[in-house]
Structure formats: structure tokens, C-alpha cells
Design a protein around this nucleic acid. Structure first.
Lengths: 182, 182
DNA sequence: ATATTATAATAACAACTGTTATTATGTTTT
DNA sequence: AAAACATAATAACAGTTGTTATTATAATAT
């Protein structure tokens, strides 16, 4: 007897994620989202309690998006943490809005920067093991320093204060690793 | 014949800066600002063309605030760039909102990260000279690497992802310098 | 004292926000 | 075909925003 559901939760989430990705999370308003999803605001509040819940789901989506992005990123460099750095900086460059939402948000609620980076595939642990195999004495300390360095580059990227090409970035990351190892 | 001016441009700017400092620049709205300054919204628009101009002035104020902050920060460390790092990270920690506005804003309009940091006293140049005197071969390159490292730590600080004490921070900065020098 | 006039307070405007009430629309079972 | 009813569109509400129009206030020159 009921009418058929035309707008699904997946439709709303997809539209919300795209909006956050393209325009930034502050643009994910009820009306913008409705327009993006091609419906009125009504289905949003049928499927979600409020806009806060929508944004929470968008965050979850972003996390798995980053995981895929990282997994798909070419791992061409032999030096530990360099691929991680390249992928992270490339993400900051290509996905400014998602980067801001994930990595520069103080109301990330429970999820640490480390968890975001490590993902469900243990991205960080893989690199730490590579460093270990490379003969690195303090792989944990190495990660910490490399991570600070990488995060610094990425944060400069989104404000337009870092725009070196990939070759120079590789060079810089390699040098950093060798410096910290030495 | 005219009525006496009770609200000055300085009053408005002062209130706007405090608001940005305490609550973040997104809270500097016409009505919040009026309340903070103890007046109606009218004097704001007499003294400023629009809210955008207010924020531009707040940014200028923040720049000189940082300059004072940096000038007043104790320069206890002998290793080049360590004092700079400590001051910068301490600023991020104590002035989260101002840090965000100044150093993580992409609409900074013309002013580079370097200019902000260097200030009117040439903070960066002083440190580069100290590195030169320390026998550093590539002081420019050293600055770049140290600056990335320092910026990374500060950006982690404002999201709560870095909270080591001053002793550990000094240690980390010193190690970074020695690594890059090596 | 009164007219003048810059200043400031109060209101109002249109546009936006999240959220909810109301109305309309399909689909399915009777 | 009609009743039932979840879904969705349209409206509405209260609150916010920037900005402007209107009214009131106070100080000075006459």
C-alpha cells in the first residue's frame, strides 16, 4: 500500500560526500544537499535524524575514500615512507576539501590522525616494517619524524605555500629519510 | 553641532580581534561584534564598508600580534631554528584560532606563509644567519626543511594530535636540525 | 532656546540555516 | 475502483547572516 521509495540513504550520502568533496563540508546544508540529490529536503530528514548525522556519515565515507586513494597510489619508491608521503601530499593537493575535513578538523571525535592514516590496511605499519628491513634502528621514531615532515608539506600544500613538483618532492622526502636515519 | 563619537574604529577592531582570538574568525559577525563592542551594529558600518574589511583589519592585527608574541618569546636555545620552532608551536597551542586564521587559511590574499613568519623583524633571516655562523652549508635548504618540520608539528598541535612537552619538543627540534645538518 | 547635524539605536529587508507541519502523490491491498 | 499509507513536495517556523532605512539622541552654532 505504500508509495515506492525513490530516494535512498545511499543517494543522500553519495550527494553529501560529493558536495563535501567539491565545495567543502560547510556547503553540506539541507537545501544544497537536496538540490544535489535532486529532491526536496524531506527525504534527508526521513533517512537521517539531523544534518550532524549526515556529516558523520560523510566523514566515514571520506575515510574509506582515502583508504582507496592510498591503495591505488603507485608505490614506485624504495625508500620507506616516501610513497606514504607522496600519496598524502597528492591527496592534499587533489582533495583539498576532504583533506581539511579529515586531517585539519579538531572535532574529529575520537579518531586520531594516526588511525586515519593507518587505515584498515595498516598503511603505517607496512612502512614501519619496511624501515625495519632497511636497517632502521628506531622505526617508531623514524615514523614520527617522517610523519611530521610529511604532514607539514601537505598542510602547506592546501594553503598554496608548497607547490614543488613530484621530482623535487621525492628528493625532499628521500633526503629527510636519509637525514633521520643517519 | 554634531553628536560626539562614542565608538571609535579602534574599539571595533579591538573587539573584532578579541572575538577572532577567543571564538574564531567565523564568529566575527556583525551582531556578535556589536555585542562585544557594547554597541549596536550601526557604528560598525559607519567605520567599515562591510564585514570583509573588518576581517582584513583583524588579519593585519593578528600579524602584528604574532610579531609581538615572537619577539617576547624567550630565545633560550642555541641551535638555530629551535627557538623559532618553539615559539611557533607555542603560538599554535595558545592561540589556536589565530593560528588557523593566519597559517591555515587559503584566502590569505597575497601574504605568503614566509612573510607571516618572517614578520617585520626578519625572524627567518636571523635564524638563517645563525645557521650560517653555525657552519651550515645550505642555510636556505636547512630553513626549508626545518620549516616544514616545524609547521607539521604546529598543525598537529591545533588538532590535538601533538602534545609533547617542551623538553621533548626541544629534543625533537634539535635532533631534526642535527639530522638535516649531518 | 532653537535649529543643525553627526552619531547611534531600533527596525526592517532579503537571504540563508536546520527542522517540522501540511499537503499531495503514488503504489498496493482490498 | 476505493481505501490505506509510506513517501515526497511545498510551506512554514524560528533563528541566523549582512546590510540598510528610519528614528532618536546629543552636542554645538546660532
Amino acid at each position: 500500500m505504500p508509495r515506492k521509495e525513490t530516494i535512498t540513504k545511499s543517494d543522500i550520502l553519495k550527494a553529501a560526500f560529493e558536495l563535501a568533496r567539491e565545495e567543502g563540508m560547510e556547503e553540506v546544508t539541507a537545501r544544497h544537499l537536496a538540490t544535489k540529490a535532486g529532491c526536496s529536503t524531506q527525504p534527508i530528514f526521513r533517512l537521517y535524524k539531523n544534518m550532524e548525522e549526515v556529516l558523520a556519515d560523510v566523514m566515514t565515507e571520506a575515510i574509506s575514500f582515502f583508504d582507496s586513494f592510498y591503495a591505488a597510489y603507485p608505490k614506485s619508491q624504495a625508500t620507506p615512507f616516501v610513497n606514504l608521503g607522496l600519496a598524502y601530499i597528492s591527496f592534499a593537493e587533489k582533495e583539498k576539501n576532504l583533506f581539511r575535513m579529515m586531517f585539519l578538523n579538531d572535532k574529529r571525535e575520537g579518531i586520531s590522525l594516526y588511525e586515519l592514516l593507518n587505515g584498515k590496511n595498516g598503511n603505517v605499519l607496512v612502512e614501519i616494517n619496511r624501515a625495519k628491513e632497511d636497517g632502521c634502528k628506531d622505526p617508531q621514531g623514524m615514523f614520527m619524524k617522517m610523519w611530521i615532515f610529511i604532514h607539514g608539506m601537505a598542510c602547506m600544500t592546501i594553503t598554496g605555500d608548497y607547490d614543488l613538483g613530484i621530482t623535487e618532492t621525492v628528493q625532499l622526502l628521500k633526503e629527510a629519510y636519509q637525514s633521520f636515519a643517519g
